[in-house]
């Protein structure tokens, strides 16, 4: 077995899968994964807020799990399957959750929304019949300064019910 070593300040080529497509870009070891996705791969739906894991704006799916992209480094993501908000629905369309967000005004400025939508994608896969308490518990990992969360909870509840019917 061998240890991978990347020297400080040296650029390397990182390959991963973004929204179903193999992609590559340049990074140095300290580059945040969120910065790599935005600056190198133009995934501008990844929003960067607090840069220390608290606000949830940068939440993406890595290998199916909703995680922060500001507290991991591009160096760690070789070969990862990454989904950002751009990959949650076919381009030009909205998924069930996004439609419910629009209907219930679950966003105002929209800065926190891509992260929340990624969290919800993973959350509803694990918890297809959530109650309000479970939704609020999941949402505690996101900060929204506009809505007061009530409309977000309503939208997720409605989307979950609709998706459970379809399933």
């Amino acid at each position: 077995m061998t240890t991978l070593h990347r020297a400080a300040g040296e650029r390397f080529t990182l390959e991963l899968t973004l929204n179903g497509r193999p992609r590559c870009g340049q990074a140095e070891p300290r580059m945040l994964l969120c910065d790599f996705l935005r600056h190198e791969l133009q995934a501008f739906g990844v929003h960067v807020g607090c840069e220390h894991g608290v606000c949830g704006a940068c939440t993406i799916l890595v290998d199916g799990r909703a995680v922060r992209s500001c507290t991991q480094y591009a160096s760690q993501a070789d070969g990862a399957e990454i989904v950002t908000v751009e990959g949650l629905a076919q381009p030009g369309t909205l998924n069930e959750v996004q439609r419910a967000f629009a209907k219930h005004h679950a966003l105002q400025c929209g800065f926190c929304t891509p992260g929340i939508l990624c969290s919800v994608a993973h959350f509803l896969r694990e918890t297809p019949h959530p109650d309000e308490q479970q939704i609020r518990d999941m949402l505690s990992g996101h900060i929204c300064r506009c809505t007061g969360y009530a409309s977000i909870v309503t939208a997720i509840l409605e989307a979950a019910t609709a998706m459970a019917k379809d399933a």
Binding site: H5, A7, P29
Partner: peptide
Amino acid sequence: MKPVAFDYYRPQALSEAVALL
């Protein structure tokens, strides 16, 4: 903020990690 520049090591076994440390 962004971290200071650092060397990145990714060992595949505990023994390698222990040797590096």
